[in-house]
Write a protein that binds this DNA or RNA. Structure first.
Lengths: 156, 156
DNA sequence: GCTCATTGTTACCTATACTCACAATGAATC
DNA sequence: GATTCATTGTGAGTATAGGTAACAATGAGC
Protein backbone atom coordinates (compact mmCIF):
# COMPACT_ATOMS: atom_id res chain seq x y z
CA UNK A 1 0.00 0.00 0.00
CA UNK A 2 2.75 2.34 -0.80
CA UNK A 3 3.96 2.13 -4.36
CA UNK A 4 3.50 5.42 -6.08
CA UNK A 5 1.12 5.13 -8.97
CA UNK A 6 2.38 2.24 -10.98
CA UNK A 7 -0.25 -0.24 -9.91
CA UNK A 8 -2.75 0.84 -12.49
CA UNK A 9 -0.48 0.42 -15.49
CA UNK A 10 0.78 -2.81 -14.01
CA UNK A 11 -2.77 -4.09 -13.84
CA UNK A 12 -3.34 -3.05 -17.43
CA UNK A 13 -0.33 -4.96 -18.59
CA UNK A 14 -1.46 -8.02 -16.71
CA UNK A 15 -4.85 -7.83 -18.36
CA UNK A 16 -3.42 -7.30 -21.84
CA UNK A 17 -0.96 -10.10 -21.40
CA UNK A 18 -3.61 -12.49 -20.26
CA UNK A 19 -5.83 -11.50 -23.13
CA UNK A 20 -3.05 -12.64 -25.47
CA UNK A 21 -2.50 -15.79 -23.50
CA UNK A 22 -6.16 -16.64 -23.64
CA UNK A 23 -6.31 -16.02 -27.38
CA UNK A 24 -3.24 -18.08 -28.02
CA UNK A 25 -4.59 -20.91 -25.90
CA UNK A 26 -7.85 -20.85 -27.81
CA UNK A 27 -6.11 -20.93 -31.17
CA UNK A 28 -3.86 -23.76 -30.09
CA UNK A 29 -6.85 -25.79 -29.03
CA UNK A 30 -8.57 -25.10 -32.34
CA UNK A 31 -5.58 -25.79 -34.55
CA UNK A 32 -4.96 -29.10 -32.89
CA UNK A 33 -8.56 -30.11 -33.38
CA UNK A 34 -9.15 -30.60 -29.68
CA UNK A 35 -12.84 -30.01 -29.36
CA UNK A 36 -12.87 -28.01 -26.18
CA UNK A 37 -12.74 -24.39 -25.08
CA UNK A 38 -10.21 -22.82 -22.72
CA UNK A 39 -12.63 -22.87 -19.78
CA UNK A 40 -13.34 -26.55 -20.36
CA UNK A 41 -9.62 -27.14 -20.55
CA UNK A 42 -9.22 -25.46 -17.19
CA UNK A 43 -11.94 -27.60 -15.70
CA UNK A 44 -10.32 -30.78 -16.99
CA UNK A 45 -6.99 -29.82 -15.48
CA UNK A 46 -8.66 -28.94 -12.20
CA UNK A 47 -10.40 -32.27 -12.27
CA UNK A 48 -7.16 -34.10 -12.88
CA UNK A 49 -5.46 -32.13 -10.13
CA UNK A 50 -8.20 -33.02 -7.68
CA UNK A 51 -7.94 -36.71 -8.52
CA UNK A 52 -4.24 -36.68 -7.85
CA UNK A 53 -4.61 -35.06 -4.45
CA UNK A 54 -7.78 -36.65 -3.16
CA UNK A 55 -8.40 -40.12 -4.44
CA UNK A 56 -12.05 -39.53 -5.11
CA UNK A 57 -13.63 -37.54 -7.92
CA UNK A 58 -14.73 -34.02 -6.98
CA UNK A 59 -18.24 -32.74 -6.50
CA UNK A 60 -19.59 -29.93 -8.66
CA UNK A 61 -19.20 -27.62 -5.66
CA UNK A 62 -15.55 -28.57 -5.26
CA UNK A 63 -14.85 -27.64 -8.85
CA UNK A 64 -16.71 -24.36 -8.49
CA UNK A 65 -14.67 -23.41 -5.45
CA UNK A 66 -11.42 -24.37 -7.07
CA UNK A 67 -12.22 -22.52 -10.28
CA UNK A 68 -13.48 -19.51 -8.34
CA UNK A 69 -16.77 -19.40 -10.18
CA UNK A 70 -20.36 -19.91 -9.07
CA UNK A 71 -21.59 -23.51 -9.19
CA UNK A 72 -23.92 -22.65 -12.03
CA UNK A 73 -20.97 -21.95 -14.28
CA UNK A 74 -19.61 -25.43 -13.66
CA UNK A 75 -22.85 -27.01 -14.77
CA UNK A 76 -22.47 -25.55 -18.26
CA UNK A 77 -18.86 -26.63 -18.56
CA UNK A 78 -19.57 -30.17 -17.38
CA UNK A 79 -22.55 -30.35 -19.74
CA UNK A 80 -20.28 -29.63 -22.67
CA UNK A 81 -17.53 -31.98 -21.55
CA UNK A 82 -19.98 -34.75 -20.81
CA UNK A 83 -21.66 -34.45 -24.19
CA UNK A 84 -18.17 -34.72 -25.67
CA UNK A 85 -17.51 -37.88 -23.68
CA UNK A 86 -14.60 -36.40 -21.75
CA UNK A 87 -16.28 -36.59 -18.39
CA UNK A 88 -19.01 -38.51 -16.62
CA UNK A 89 -21.52 -37.46 -13.97
CA UNK A 90 -21.77 -40.08 -11.25
CA UNK A 91 -24.25 -39.82 -8.39
CA UNK A 92 -22.74 -40.10 -4.95
CA UNK A 93 -24.21 -43.07 -3.06
CA UNK A 94 -23.62 -41.48 0.35
CA UNK A 95 -25.37 -38.21 -0.40
CA UNK A 96 -27.91 -38.18 -3.12
CA UNK A 97 -27.65 -34.45 -3.61
CA UNK A 98 -24.08 -34.55 -4.77
CA UNK A 99 -22.73 -35.50 -8.14
CA UNK A 100 -19.18 -36.66 -8.61
CA UNK A 101 -17.35 -35.84 -11.80
CA UNK A 102 -15.25 -38.63 -13.22
CA UNK A 103 -12.70 -38.48 -15.98
CA UNK A 104 -13.31 -40.86 -18.87
CA UNK A 105 -10.64 -42.46 -21.03
CA UNK A 106 -11.44 -39.96 -23.70
CA UNK A 107 -11.05 -37.23 -21.12
CA UNK A 108 -7.60 -38.52 -20.22
CA UNK A 109 -6.65 -38.51 -23.89
CA UNK A 110 -7.93 -34.97 -24.24
CA UNK A 111 -5.93 -33.95 -21.21
CA UNK A 112 -2.66 -35.04 -22.68
CA UNK A 113 -3.33 -33.35 -26.02
CA UNK A 114 -4.44 -30.31 -24.15
CA UNK A 115 -1.26 -30.02 -22.15
CA UNK A 116 0.65 -29.60 -25.37
CA UNK A 117 -1.67 -26.84 -26.46
CA UNK A 118 -1.37 -25.06 -23.17
CA UNK A 119 2.39 -25.31 -23.11
CA UNK A 120 2.61 -23.99 -26.65
CA UNK A 121 0.41 -21.05 -25.76
CA UNK A 122 2.44 -20.33 -22.65
CA UNK A 123 5.67 -20.65 -24.59
CA UNK A 124 4.44 -18.26 -27.25
CA UNK A 125 3.59 -15.65 -24.67
CA UNK A 126 6.55 -16.16 -22.36
CA UNK A 127 9.11 -16.38 -25.15
CA UNK A 128 10.79 -13.07 -24.27
CA UNK A 129 11.70 -14.31 -20.80
CA UNK A 130 14.77 -16.26 -19.78
CA UNK A 131 14.51 -19.26 -17.51
CA UNK A 132 15.57 -17.19 -14.55
CA UNK A 133 12.98 -14.55 -15.30
CA UNK A 134 10.31 -17.19 -15.58
CA UNK A 135 11.29 -18.54 -12.22
CA UNK A 136 11.07 -15.11 -10.68
CA UNK A 137 7.71 -14.51 -12.32
CA UNK A 138 6.51 -17.85 -11.02
CA UNK A 139 7.49 -16.94 -7.49
CA UNK A 140 5.76 -13.60 -7.68
CA UNK A 141 2.61 -15.27 -8.93
CA UNK A 142 2.85 -17.84 -6.16
CA UNK A 143 2.93 -15.03 -3.65
CA UNK A 144 -0.02 -13.35 -5.28
CA UNK A 145 -2.15 -16.44 -5.55
CA UNK A 146 -1.16 -17.88 -2.22
CA UNK A 147 -3.23 -15.43 -0.23
CA UNK A 148 -6.31 -17.42 -1.04
CA UNK A 149 -7.68 -14.37 -2.74
CA UNK A 150 -11.32 -13.56 -2.50
CA UNK A 151 -13.50 -16.53 -3.32
CA UNK A 152 -16.78 -15.42 -4.87
CA UNK A 153 -18.32 -14.09 -1.68
CA UNK A 154 -17.43 -10.42 -1.28
CA UNK A 155 -17.14 -8.73 2.05
CA UNK A 156 -19.57 -5.89 1.43
CA UNK B 1 12.35 -22.57 -24.93
CA UNK B 2 14.08 -24.39 -22.20
CA UNK B 3 12.35 -24.20 -18.87
CA UNK B 4 11.28 -27.63 -17.79
CA UNK B 5 7.54 -27.83 -17.48
CA UNK B 6 6.60 -24.88 -15.38
CA UNK B 7 5.20 -22.75 -18.16
CA UNK B 8 1.80 -24.34 -18.05
CA UNK B 9 1.17 -23.77 -14.34
CA UNK B 10 2.62 -20.32 -14.71
CA UNK B 11 0.11 -19.55 -17.42
CA UNK B 12 -2.67 -20.91 -15.23
CA UNK B 13 -1.71 -18.65 -12.41
CA UNK B 14 -1.59 -15.68 -14.71
CA UNK B 15 -5.08 -16.45 -15.94
CA UNK B 16 -6.48 -16.99 -12.46
CA UNK B 17 -4.89 -13.83 -11.20
CA UNK B 18 -6.27 -11.80 -14.02
CA UNK B 19 -9.68 -13.30 -13.49
CA UNK B 20 -9.59 -11.92 -9.97
CA UNK B 21 -8.32 -8.59 -11.15
CA UNK B 22 -11.06 -8.33 -13.70
CA UNK B 23 -13.71 -9.21 -11.13
CA UNK B 24 -12.36 -6.73 -8.64
CA UNK B 25 -12.23 -4.01 -11.25
CA UNK B 26 -15.81 -4.69 -12.22
CA UNK B 27 -17.00 -4.58 -8.62
CA UNK B 28 -15.12 -1.38 -7.96
CA UNK B 29 -16.75 0.25 -10.95
CA UNK B 30 -20.16 -0.92 -9.81
CA UNK B 31 -19.78 0.06 -6.18
CA UNK B 32 -18.67 3.54 -7.11
CA UNK B 33 -21.65 3.94 -9.36
CA UNK B 34 -19.51 4.60 -12.42
CA UNK B 35 -21.74 3.46 -15.21
CA UNK B 36 -19.20 1.70 -17.36
CA UNK B 37 -17.79 -1.77 -17.81
CA UNK B 38 -14.14 -2.79 -17.62
CA UNK B 39 -13.73 -2.90 -21.38
CA UNK B 40 -15.20 0.57 -21.70
CA UNK B 41 -12.84 1.71 -18.98
CA UNK B 42 -9.94 0.36 -20.96
CA UNK B 43 -11.11 2.14 -24.06
CA UNK B 44 -11.39 5.42 -22.20
CA UNK B 45 -7.87 5.11 -20.86
CA UNK B 46 -6.57 4.19 -24.29
CA UNK B 47 -8.34 7.21 -25.68
CA UNK B 48 -6.80 9.48 -23.07
CA UNK B 49 -3.39 7.99 -23.71
CA UNK B 50 -3.70 8.61 -27.42
CA UNK B 51 -4.69 12.21 -26.88
CA UNK B 52 -1.64 12.80 -24.73
CA UNK B 53 0.74 11.37 -27.30
CA UNK B 54 -0.79 12.55 -30.56
CA UNK B 55 -2.64 15.78 -30.30
CA UNK B 56 -5.57 14.60 -32.35
CA UNK B 57 -8.33 12.20 -31.37
CA UNK B 58 -7.88 8.62 -32.58
CA UNK B 59 -9.76 6.85 -35.33
CA UNK B 60 -11.77 3.73 -34.58
CA UNK B 61 -9.03 1.72 -36.26
CA UNK B 62 -6.37 3.25 -34.02
CA UNK B 63 -8.28 2.20 -30.95
CA UNK B 64 -8.79 -1.30 -32.30
CA UNK B 65 -5.10 -1.72 -32.94
CA UNK B 66 -4.13 -0.40 -29.57
CA UNK B 67 -6.68 -2.55 -27.76
CA UNK B 68 -5.71 -5.58 -29.83
CA UNK B 69 -9.27 -6.31 -30.87
CA UNK B 70 -11.01 -6.29 -34.23
CA UNK B 71 -12.51 -2.93 -35.23
CA UNK B 72 -16.01 -4.28 -34.89
CA UNK B 73 -15.48 -4.70 -31.14
CA UNK B 74 -14.63 -1.03 -30.81
CA UNK B 75 -17.92 -0.04 -32.39
CA UNK B 76 -19.88 -1.68 -29.59
CA UNK B 77 -17.77 -0.07 -26.89
CA UNK B 78 -17.98 3.37 -28.43
CA UNK B 79 -21.72 2.93 -28.89
CA UNK B 80 -22.10 2.38 -25.17
CA UNK B 81 -19.77 5.19 -24.16
CA UNK B 82 -21.38 7.61 -26.59
CA UNK B 83 -24.87 6.81 -25.37
CA UNK B 84 -23.56 7.52 -21.88
CA UNK B 85 -22.20 10.87 -23.02
CA UNK B 86 -18.59 9.98 -22.22
CA UNK B 87 -17.41 10.14 -25.80
CA UNK B 88 -18.35 11.73 -29.09
CA UNK B 89 -18.05 10.48 -32.67
CA UNK B 90 -16.73 13.21 -34.93
CA UNK B 91 -16.39 12.76 -38.69
CA UNK B 92 -12.96 13.49 -40.08
CA UNK B 93 -13.12 16.31 -42.64
CA UNK B 94 -10.04 15.05 -44.52
CA UNK B 95 -11.26 11.51 -45.02
CA UNK B 96 -14.92 10.90 -44.89
CA UNK B 97 -14.50 7.24 -44.11
CA UNK B 98 -12.86 7.82 -40.78
CA UNK B 99 -14.47 8.76 -37.51
CA UNK B 100 -12.53 10.41 -34.74
CA UNK B 101 -13.40 9.68 -31.14
CA UNK B 102 -13.37 12.67 -28.83
CA UNK B 103 -13.53 12.73 -25.07
CA UNK B 104 -16.37 14.79 -23.61
CA UNK B 105 -16.27 16.63 -20.30
CA UNK B 106 -18.33 13.86 -18.82
CA UNK B 107 -15.81 11.40 -20.20
CA UNK B 108 -13.00 13.26 -18.49
CA UNK B 109 -14.91 13.15 -15.24
CA UNK B 110 -15.50 9.42 -15.66
CA UNK B 111 -11.81 8.94 -16.33
CA UNK B 112 -10.75 10.43 -13.03
CA UNK B 113 -13.32 8.44 -11.07
CA UNK B 114 -12.31 5.38 -12.98
CA UNK B 115 -8.65 5.71 -12.12
CA UNK B 116 -9.54 5.38 -8.46
CA UNK B 117 -11.49 2.22 -9.16
CA UNK B 118 -8.69 0.74 -11.18
CA UNK B 119 -6.08 1.55 -8.56
CA UNK B 120 -8.24 0.06 -5.84
CA UNK B 121 -8.68 -3.12 -7.84
CA UNK B 122 -4.97 -3.32 -8.53
CA UNK B 123 -4.15 -2.64 -4.90
CA UNK B 124 -6.53 -5.34 -3.76
CA UNK B 125 -4.90 -7.88 -6.02
CA UNK B 126 -1.30 -6.80 -5.57
CA UNK B 127 -1.55 -6.37 -1.81
CA UNK B 128 0.73 -9.35 -1.04
CA UNK B 129 3.64 -7.79 -2.91
CA UNK B 130 6.19 -5.33 -1.57
CA UNK B 131 7.16 -2.27 -3.56
CA UNK B 132 10.29 -3.97 -4.75
CA UNK B 133 8.37 -7.01 -5.88
CA UNK B 134 5.94 -4.82 -7.74
CA UNK B 135 8.79 -3.13 -9.50
CA UNK B 136 10.23 -6.46 -10.53
CA UNK B 137 6.85 -7.65 -11.71
CA UNK B 138 6.44 -4.45 -13.68
CA UNK B 139 9.76 -4.98 -15.41
CA UNK B 140 8.92 -8.54 -16.30
CA UNK B 141 5.61 -7.45 -17.75
CA UNK B 142 7.34 -4.70 -19.70
CA UNK B 143 9.60 -7.30 -21.22
CA UNK B 144 6.66 -9.51 -22.07
CA UNK B 145 4.55 -6.78 -23.58
CA UNK B 146 7.37 -5.06 -25.35
CA UNK B 147 7.68 -7.66 -28.05
CA UNK B 148 4.67 -6.24 -29.78
CA UNK B 149 2.97 -9.56 -29.37
CA UNK B 150 0.71 -10.89 -32.04
CA UNK B 151 -1.88 -8.35 -33.15
CA UNK B 152 -5.06 -10.06 -34.32
CA UNK B 153 -3.68 -11.32 -37.62
CA UNK B 154 -2.27 -14.78 -37.14
CA UNK B 155 0.45 -16.19 -39.28
CA UNK B 156 -1.24 -19.41 -40.37
C1' DG C 1 -42.87 -33.99 11.78
C1' DC C 2 -41.20 -29.35 10.65
C1' DT C 3 -37.79 -26.12 9.62
C1' DC C 4 -33.59 -24.89 7.61
C1' DA C 5 -29.21 -25.51 5.03
C1' DT C 6 -26.90 -27.83 1.02
C1' DT C 7 -26.53 -29.18 -3.79
C1' DG C 8 -27.18 -28.93 -8.35
C1' DT C 9 -29.98 -27.23 -12.07
C1' DT C 10 -33.52 -24.60 -15.12
C1' DA C 11 -34.29 -20.18 -17.08
C1' DC C 12 -32.59 -15.89 -18.22
C1' DC C 13 -29.31 -11.92 -18.73
C1' DT C 14 -24.78 -9.52 -19.51
C1' DA C 15 -20.14 -8.58 -21.32
C1' DT C 16 -16.71 -9.35 -24.55
C1' DA C 17 -15.09 -10.44 -28.79
C1' DC C 18 -15.38 -12.96 -33.16
C1' DT C 19 -16.82 -13.65 -38.41
C1' DC C 20 -19.08 -12.32 -42.53
C1' DA C 21 -21.13 -9.20 -45.55
C1' DC C 22 -21.67 -4.60 -47.01
C1' DA C 23 -21.84 0.36 -48.07
C1' DA C 24 -19.23 4.34 -48.44
C1' DT C 25 -15.18 6.30 -49.63
C1' DG C 26 -10.45 6.99 -51.34
C1' DA C 27 -6.56 5.61 -54.44
C1' DA C 28 -4.59 3.68 -58.54
C1' DT C 29 -4.67 2.20 -63.09
C1' DC C 30 -6.14 1.97 -67.64
C1' DG D 1 -13.46 9.42 -66.69
C1' DA D 2 -14.36 4.71 -65.64
C1' DT D 3 -12.85 0.59 -63.49
C1' DT D 4 -10.73 -1.79 -60.04
C1' DC D 5 -8.97 -2.41 -55.59
C1' DA D 6 -8.02 -1.16 -50.69
C1' DT D 7 -9.63 1.16 -46.42
C1' DT D 8 -12.96 2.23 -42.88
C1' DG D 9 -16.62 1.57 -40.07
C1' DT D 10 -20.84 -0.95 -39.09
C1' DG D 11 -25.23 -4.30 -39.24
C1' DA D 12 -26.33 -9.06 -38.32
C1' DG D 13 -25.38 -13.09 -36.18
C1' DT D 14 -22.55 -16.32 -33.08
C1' DA D 15 -19.78 -18.12 -29.25
C1' DT D 16 -17.73 -18.05 -24.74
C1' DA D 17 -17.66 -17.06 -20.06
C1' DG D 18 -19.80 -15.63 -16.39
C1' DG D 19 -23.61 -13.93 -13.22
C1' DT D 20 -28.57 -13.86 -10.64
C1' DA D 21 -32.89 -15.74 -9.12
C1' DA D 22 -36.00 -19.35 -8.31
C1' DC D 23 -36.53 -24.14 -7.41
C1' DA D 24 -36.61 -29.20 -6.42
C1' DA D 25 -34.44 -32.73 -4.06
C1' DT D 26 -32.17 -34.04 -0.27
C1' DG D 27 -30.00 -34.07 4.33
C1' DA D 28 -29.69 -32.47 9.24
C1' DG D 29 -31.29 -30.53 13.68
C1' DC D 30 -34.79 -29.73 16.69
Amino acid sequence: MSSPDADGPLADQLLSLTRRLHRSHKHQLEERGIGITPAQSRLLRTLSHHLQHHGSPPRMADLAERLEVVPRAVTTLVDALESGGKVRRVPDPDNRRVIRIELTDEGRKALSELRGARRAAAEEILAPLTDLERTVLGELLDTLMGEGGAPPERRC
